[in-house]
Design a protein around this nucleic acid. Structure first.
Lengths: 174, 174
DNA sequence: GCAACTGCTTTCAAAATGATATCAGTAATT
DNA sequence: AATTACTGATATCATTTTGAAAGCAGTTGC
């Protein structure tokens, strides 16, 4: 099998890799959600079915976007890791998030991360990528303070808490 | 129809817009190839079929990525234009191209544009976007020197010419 | 010992894809 | 005036992909 690609254009080849509805969402959940196991990925916001998830994971492994190894703590668990190729998508994720936030009907709670990524700019993206390298590639890293993912997650939860309060204003005793 | 979206996450919504094999390629051909007509878009590198092209154009119009108007010079011709929403994808195109160039088996001639876009950085992208606004939105622009698209196209043709020469070294008389 | 959890696989219906042919009108060519 | 080529699509139909749901052989925690 040499190559059955439609064309050798970089944009076309990129789209052949993740030009579908699910592949990039799986990467997103691993990057921003810290998910590493099949069952974790199955609980995506969007509700992927298990056969599709299995198929996409297989493809992503073949392409070299992910690696897979056994979880020492459980004989049936597999740990999926991002490769550098996937970690390099962080800036694209940031741009995609910024674009979606500007032009599409996003919700506040699900776009707060995108907002922080946009505001943080390339400096934040690089820091995030370093953290991901440490987490997925075993590269050591000088860690100081909370991780980027923790910061993004905290902001998300803050919005959720505030929204919950706004929905039931001072009727705890009702 | 309120919204039958899977989730209001900006990345998910972005993927619902162009998370398929063709939509972004159509936008690419309009941005980098300067294509404006149905038949022009039909002659893509990758060979899209006419029914798929028609369907995607319709969707892109509905979403608001494109507009369509009559061509004064031909009663059956339609002119497709990019909206600001689509022009805003230029940085994403640049990143996608750079990523593809780094990790996928691209050809030199089809990736020279991506290389120049990467080297040009945000400054070049902005200039390109201004040119596209002038071309597609009728925004006036202070034009000096060759357009970004012309520069990219010239670089592409230079590579093609060089490659043609390398293939037949000095056997013009054979 | 039993319920819950593990990463999948199977089944089957529905939807999307895509190659090919076609169309009715327009324009350029001869 | 006749022919040829071009316009933006549609229609047909086979193949491929998608996806919901159920199931499975083990493993683990209680």
């Amino acid at each position: 099998m040499i190559d059955d690609h439609r064309s050798a254009c970089p944009i076309n080849l990129s789209l052949e890799v993740f030009g579908d509805k699910w592949s990039l969402l799986i990467i997103r959940d691993m990057i921003f959600g810290g998910k590493r196991h099949f069952r974790e990925l199955l609980r995506s916001q969007e509700g992927i079915s298990s056969n599709i998830l299995a198929d996409r994971l297989k493809t992503l492994l073949e392409i070299g976007m992910l690696t897979k190894r056994d979880d020492p703590s459980h004989k049936q668990k597999a740990i999926y890791s991002l490769t550098e190729m996937a970690i390099a998508l962080v800036p694209i994720m940031a741009h995609l998030g910024a674009w979606g936030r500007r032009y599409l009907p996003v919700s506040e709670e699900l776009s707060i991360r995108a907002q922080l990524m946009e505001e943080g700019g390339p400096v934040l993206w690089e820091r995030f990528m370093d953290e991901l390298r440490a987490e997925h590639l075993g590269v050591s890293r000088a860690s100081d303070g909370p991780s980027v993912r923790q910061t993004l997650q905290a902001a998300y939860e803050e919005v959720m808490t505030r929204k919950a309060k706004e929905r039931e204003p001072a009727n705890a005793g009702s």
